[in-house]
Design a protein around this nucleic acid. Sequence first.
DNA 1: ATCTTATATCGCAAATATACGATTAATCAA
DNA 2: TTGATTAATCGTATATTTGCGATATAAGAT
Lengths: 111, 111
Amino acid sequence: MAVHKKEEFTQKEQDLAAFAKALAHPARIAILKVLAQRNECICGEIVEILPLAQSTVSQHLKELKSAGLINGSVDGPRSCYCINWKAFEKFNQEFSWLFTNLKIKNEKSCC
Amino acid sequence: MAVHKKEEFTQKEQDLAAFAKALAHPARIAILKVLAQRNECICGEIVEILPLAQSTVSQHLKELKSAGLINGSVDGPRSCYCINWKAFEKFNQEFSWLFTNLKIKNEKSCC
DNA sequence: ATCTTATATCGCAAATATACGATTAATCAA
DNA sequence: TTGATTAATCGTATATTTGCGATATAAGAT
């Protein structure tokens, strides 16, 4: 867009939107599932499981990481990614707060 | 992108991602808040409250509607939008399910 | 019938996201 | 040191999103 107006909203709205954005692609949800199912952080397997090229998966991982949803560390020639449960919990609560907050105000729809 | 690969993921992953996408902009979160705070569906006020042009707000409303998060009906020369609590609750539960599901498998991160 | 008001839609421009192949970088093994 | 392996980054193409002004539409008011 010509101008980006996102910063004109509240910080909380921006944070929630950023979190939602990180989850706004099925590949990233799938990645989170894979990470959760493994006890070890095997990264290369994600590429094999997902129907995407290695570079694309790497990009999605980068986005999840910059959103704070996963941690990553270098382990020799391979990388290790894990879910950042703390951040995840925080956003889970913020979402619940949003849902509850919205619902408390007006239980029924008028149209 | 050259090819869209979204449909190669599970339906549940796609649905969740679509829902997250609808929330992935602070303007849309702000709109939901406004809709929830009013007992009546006053649509024009949203334009006054948000720092966006009328046409842009209309577009965001359209996206929320097509995501199923809000209902809309024509009421004379003005439109009436309300939150679709049923759909909202469904997605809230799906999200909770995702969070819980992820966390159950592996409580602690390894990196 | 015309004017006003409220909202949707169209057309456009710019920004961002998605995807891939090619390349780079970094480590391990021989 | 060389070669193999793994993952990040770069460059590029295309699609989608965001945003606005202008226009269209639709109903109520005069």
